Simulated assay, not measured.
Amino acid sequence: MKTLKLFTAIAITAILGFTSCQSEENIQTGTNPNANSSTSPTASNYERAAMNDGSDDDFLDGNACTELLFPLTATVNGQEITLISKLDFSAVLDIMGEFNDDNDSVSFSFPINVKTSSYTEVKVNNQSELDALKQECESAEAQGKDAISCVDINFPITMLTYDITLEQTGSVVVQSEKQLYTFMTDLQSDELFAVNYPINATLSNGTEVQIKSDAEFTDSISECVQFEDEKDEAAETAVEVEAILSGAKFTVDSYIVAGVNTANDYVNYTIEFTNDLKLIAKDTVNTTTGEIEGTYAVSSETEVFLNTTFASNTAVSALGNDWVVSTYSNTLISLHSKTDASVTLTFKKI
């Protein structure tokens, strides 16, 4: 899941379902030296944080800036599938995850409908139009006009409004991200606003925060963007690690438990990582011994994980664990246990 989403140039000409209310009595009267203009950094932060999140379906359209609308039909790795809701994503991921050394392909049965970061619904008639939306997304990302999806504001919140003399003109209770986006994009050059702090928010790292100022909101964004960057970097590393493992055979170069290297217990074994996420351990000396099968999976958060599983009571059962990838190269994968960093394992490619 990317953090960034598209800030499109499409203007909203009609606002539907905007139910924010302006109070008859101002929550805060008088002047406010902290009021912000529509072009202020605070306005940009709140506008970008309120954009529509289109990142959940990136594995289908490769575009965090558009949300695919249902129903739609796609051909995934040669298999046609109709998606009625997000519940059907798992079927797509199962097809894509069948092999880890192939190039996944997705083609849509056009036309399809998408919702942009500005909550505008667009009919896409062909791949060229879909590619154009992706290019808009990349342009917005390069200009810092993309969405910030790693901070979820807990609604409702109240926005105080002011004129250019800093006299308060009213207050607006905002109930949703869409209403907040509308409020921010409707601000005129002669209108100012201030957030009625404190507000609460949840960051993508799971942290719940109380925000008491514009500066604290900026700090929260910086914190969660850094977390998302670390996740993206780990995801890229996971792809590299999986590519090194897939279809290759390894030996146990070291296996340290309680300070003792027990690699000699596995000196006769090769461990093969197949492209369909299976493990095959084979005794190369005693060829009458049958193969020992298991499974593996590479995943990531801010670190890269390798889960290995073998059946119990086999010669290689102890190699099954939830591992953290410590270091890697084209020939060596060094791991430590997720629950006990003193337990380490190193695979060497044959």
Score class of each variant (00 low, 15 high):
V304K: 00
T207C: 01
L335Y: 00
T202C: 01
T3M: 14
K231R: 15
S105Q: 10
I12M: 12
E208G: 04
D58F: 14
A132L: 11
N275R: 10
F18D: 14
K115M: 12
S117N: 13
E223G: 00
Y46R: 03
V343G: 03
S23D: 13
Q143R: 12
A64P: 13
A11I: 10
E216Y: 08
S176K: 04
V241M: 01
T270K: 07
V267W: 09
S85C: 08
F273N: 01
E121I: 15
E136T: 02
S342I: 05
P41H: 07
S189F: 08
I350F: 04
I164H: 10
I112D: 03
T302F: 00
T327R: 04
E47V: 07
I148D: 02
A14E: 15
Y255F: 15
D131W: 07
E303D: 14
V122I: 11
S38M: 09
L187N: 07
I244W: 03
L203K: 07
D232I: 10
Y269G: 06
V316E: 05
D102S: 09
V151D: 02
L68T: 03
E25H: 13
V260T: 15
D131Y: 05
T185K: 15
T327Y: 02
I84T: 15
V267D: 14
N36H: 14
I95Y: 00
N275M: 06
F305V: 00
N32D: 14
E47Q: 15
L6K: 11
D253H: 01
S189Q: 13
T289V: 07
C65I: 07
Q135I: 13
N286W: 03
F193Q: 02
I292N: 05
S139I: 09
I12L: 12
N154Y: 06
G206Q: 02
F250Y: 12
T202D: 08
T185A: 05
K134T: 12
Q179R: 07
D232R: 12
E208C: 01
I12P: 05
Y197C: 06
T29H: 15
D276I: 08
T218N: 14
N205D: 15
S213H: 10
A9S: 12
E301Y: 06
F89E: 08
L87M: 13
